[in-house]
Design a binder for these strands. Structure first.
Lengths: 344, 344
DNA sequence: GATGTGAACGTAAGCGCTTTCGTAAGCGCT
DNA sequence: AGCGCTTACGAAAGCGCTTACGTTCACATC
């Protein structure tokens, strides 16, 4: 007895046979390439649909030398800042019929390189790298070199929020934003400030701090008197920073967190300790993550258009590469809410 | 003059030539397959590293018939619930050396099918589908059929939070959780309840509501007297629901939101209207997203281990398929915080 | 010393597509 | 009828890998 051995999946050949055409015609019909009469093309498509044929992407990419997919590298997808960027990339990518590979690095430079390599291996058409780069020149150079090779092989790269990689970039106005938020606090009359920040080894943070320093200098406040507390760039880090500030610098009247996540942690500690915000201490954030406006008190912060930044970055990456790296600034906006007020 | 035409990217052949071995030996060396002496294998690897060779994943997948990548389907990656699940999948996936393709559907059933097909086309080794399914049997059947074909072709599937697809599943205790949160509120003495929920056409929501109904019945509260307000399953939907509840049912003393996002929106509206929580109205959430504990008032909710659920789902999907679909329940935990108290 | 054995390596046949090139047929023109 | 031109299609050559199978050679066995 003969056992009819069934293939696991349909091939283009099966569709072609069923439609009574050659494999070449079938391929052209399905991809919409010219050189096939409309009637034949339509018949092939109908047959394929009925059979439930799904083309093998690997075979297609190998033969065509291109792939309809893009890569996205983020620090941590659970972080709302990156989640929103990812949402933007996924939205535009979906519209363009691209699949998106997401990698997260946990802010580990080695892992970042590894992830980039993996994306290169996948011959993704474009790579979007979100999140701060490293101030360390050696790390920058390593990333730069890998990306350079990828681009020479025809890959496209865009980054969000770092400007040292020689590729197209979407740049949030970190320095201007840092300046704006500090100016707001200074204008309210605060003079004894603390800053809660993540590692200064990240460019984003360095930029934001630079803005704060500018504003202080302009207002005649010696930046050296500003207490800069470095902790994790997370809610937990914010809590630790807040406790440290309260313990060591009880006279501070305003705490500037360098992202909303830290600010949320800070608010939480102040609330637990019964400290009035903004009555005794004003608190500010940075990013304007979705929840910032719904906190109590709602958070004064700098709005960055994360979703749009994700879209723009992918857009840049999909464009014909320019001779010189393009820069696209993403605007910032000071959003004044209830967490800031004049010093008590 | 002869122009040396340079290849865009290195091939395995180039490495083999440089190392003075055949392409087969090179392949075996790099993949760690047996049949190569250690010295030769090491030399090949060293040469490959020095040349910066990165294997073409498409060629590899095509030849080997497998791919080291998995797909993740979520409703919306910007939603913290899904972002945390994604984080779990990415974490475990990264550990296993898998790349992860993320698709989001915007809660659109057609788009979900489309995304699943795209993943099938990519011959991903496994697919994890997160998020509620549709109660509608026709939609269920369509998804089920596509997945069935994929599994017959050797693909693995696991789902999170839906139990109708005949595949391995990680099931959050939605009904038990709904019951627990309602019991908590009822035990505090509340009798005039409102529920703010997303579309009841989603299984997750139907399950949670069923739990609430159970608790009400057990406590002798007629579920028909509970005001169930259906809106978007988001912060914005929570605000709309809250306004409607305040306008139409001002005597309500507790609002049960069917996820934290809605609860945050509700808290925000109550705060704006100067309504004391929990003094006049108690509010509960569901999920325990990261920010829930740092809100003011902090949110009483049901904790679901999202990150772990993501990991477990991928784990299930990577295992040898069992004869019968496996079920793995993810525990729930009532987290009582400051947003609930006895009715005023 | 003939023979079997296994390890180490090379040859070549695909994997399922895309795309170049060749060919046949249909068309209008002289 | 003969010519060139266009259009529609098929044959076949890859894309860059993996892997079944063949070959070689060192070594142990009788």
């Amino acid at each position: 007895m003969q056992v009819s051995r069934q293939r696991a999946t349909l091939r283009l050949q099966d569709v072609a046979t069923a439609a009574g055409v050659s494999i070449a015609t079938a391929s052209r019909s399905l991809s919409g390439a010219p050189g096939v009469s409309d009637t034949v093309a339509e018949r092939v498509r109908e047959v394929a649909r009925q059979m439930g044929y799904v083309a093998n992407v690997h075979a297609r990419s190998l033969a065509a030398g291109t792939s309809r997919s893009v890569g996205l590298v983020v620090h941590e997808i659970g972080d709302p800042y990156f989640a929103e960027i990812a949402s933007g990339v996924l939205r535009l990518g979906g519209e363009e019929g691209l699949t998106v590979q997401i990698c997260h690095t946990g802010r580990d430079p080695d892992k970042e390189l590894e992830q980039i390599r993996s994306l290169v291996a996948h011959r993704v058409g474009a790579i979007v790298i979100a999140g701060s780069g490293f101030v360390d020149p050696a790390l920058q150079a390593a990333a730069r070199q890998d990306l350079q090779a990828y681009r020479e092989a025809g890959g496209r790269v865009a980054v969000i929020g770092r400007h040292h990689l020689g590729v197209d970039a979407v740049l949030p106005e970190n320095t201007k934003g840092g300046r704006a938020i500090a100016e707001h606090v200074l204008a309210l009359g605060h003079r004894r400030l603390a800053v809660a920040t993540g590692s200064r080894g990240l460019t984003t943070i360095a930029d934001r701090l630079a803005g704060v320093e500018e504003a202080c200098t302009a207002a005649g406040v010696d930046f050296a008197t500003v207490q800069v507390i470095e902790a994790e760039f997370t809610r937990a880090g914010g809590k630790i920073a807040a406790e440290q500030i309260l313990a060591e610098h009880p006279d501070v009247t305003a705490i500037l967190a360098m992202n909303d996540d830290m600010a949320i942690g800070i608010l939480s500690v102040l609330r637990l300790q019964g400290i009035d915000v903004p009555g005794r201490i004003s608190v500010t954030g940075f990013d304007d993550v979705a929840v910032a406006g719904d906190l109590a008190p709602s958070l004064t912060t700098i709005r960055l258009p994360m979703l749009t930044m994700g879209e723009h970055a992918l857009e840049l990456a999909l464009k014909e590469p320019a001779a010189r790296p393009r820069r696209r600034t993403a605007g910032h906006e000071l959003v004044v809410r209830d967490s800031t007020g004049p010093p008590g």
